[in-house]
Amino acid sequence: MSKKILFILSEYGYWGEELLGPVVACDENGYQAVFATATGKRPQALPPSLDPGYVDPPLGRSVTTPEVAVAATALDGSSRLDNPLSLTAWIPDRPYFSEPDYLRKIEAYYRDLGAIETDIEQYDAMVIVGGSGPIVDLANNGRLHELILAFVEADKPIVAECYGVTCLAFARNWDDRRSIIDGKHVTGHCKEYDYKDGTGFIGTDFNMGPPPYPLEYVLQDATGPTGRYHGNVGRETSVLVDYPFITARSTPDSFLAGRKMVEVLEKGLRKFGW
């Protein structure tokens, strides 16, 4: 049976290194990378993430080495990303309560969701790639939330990077509305790393300014009184494993997150970084 990892990417821009790190781990360890986006549109890297001369405003330095820029540019321009799966075509859309014949529609919805359990048997893990794009089409994507819940139910690990970690905080069972990271230890984009201006997206000229929410605060609340958010400010890397979740704070953590994913899958790693 072939080994496969499902990668979820935004159609509004991913950060180059945050795809490259886990993909390199897959390629080096015999895992096939399968890519998916919200509607099946080809993902594109955010231009600053491919530019070693780009100075990250909060950090005051470049966060992309020349070597990573070359490799990430090659991956972004390769045919590997040409035909991603579509979450819209794959996963049903939950009906509104106000829709006519709601009961029959919600029954059909749950029947259709059952097929996901079979669909994901082929995958060993999921990676939610970070960057600013996930803010737009992944963080509050109900279809992605259902996929995340299915992976958790199947006891399959999930890697989430940077603003991709938001998807974990918002993925909730509709019965109890508790975050799936309640009681877990996670990392993610810390307040000190947030832009004050310049949060942008592929395909738009819109400068959002700062991010629409401080992810650190979201994660502090979602992990609850028995879990914890770890910013690890001042440390060069921040990757946590609290199985089944592998969370990475930002760009420099991408290669480490990929390596830890392999350790989780092949060596039984269940806790790291806290």
Rank of each mutant, 00 (worst) to 15 (best):
G209A: 04
L85C: 11
G231R: 10
Q122S: 04
C26F: 05
E67F: 03
Y243E: 01
G21W: 11
G188F: 07
P57F: 06
R178Y: 04
G16K: 03
G114F: 09
A248D: 02
A74W: 01
E153W: 04
P22E: 11
V34L: 06
I120D: 11
G40H: 09
P225F: 09
R235D: 10
G164V: 06
A74L: 11
V159D: 05
G203Q: 10
Y110L: 09
I246C: 05
I158D: 08
E263M: 12
G231Y: 00
I91C: 06
Y96Q: 08
G130T: 10
G130D: 11
Y217T: 13
I128Q: 06
R177P: 00
T65A: 13
F201I: 12
F97P: 02
R80G: 01
N141A: 13
L81E: 11
L9V: 12
N207W: 00
G13Q: 09
Y54I: 00
K156T: 13
I8E: 06
A45G: 03
D175E: 09
G40F: 12
A169K: 02
N140Q: 14
L215G: 08
D82Q: 14
L240K: 04
G198N: 03
T37M: 06
I91V: 15
I116S: 08
P48L: 02
D182C: 05
E146S: 15
L46I: 02
P212F: 02
G258K: 12
A38T: 15
R259C: 05
R178H: 09
V241E: 03
S10F: 09
T37V: 12
E107G: 01
G164H: 06
A72Y: 02
A169C: 06
S250H: 13
E266W: 11
L144T: 07
E236C: 02
E99R: 00
E28H: 14
G114Q: 04
S179K: 01
A69G: 09
E99N: 02
P100N: 07
I135H: 06
R172P: 01
Y31T: 08
R94F: 07
A171E: 02
G131M: 10
D112C: 02
F272C: 00
T204W: 04
T37W: 10
H145A: 15
P58W: 08
L19R: 02
D253M: 05
S98G: 04
V165M: 09
V129I: 12
L50A: 04
W15Q: 04
R104D: 15
P52G: 03
P157I: 13
A71G: 03
G209Q: 08
Y193V: 02
D221H: 10
V70W: 05
M208L: 14
R80P: 00
A160Q: 14
H189L: 15
Y195G: 00
L20P: 01
P214Q: 10
E161D: 05
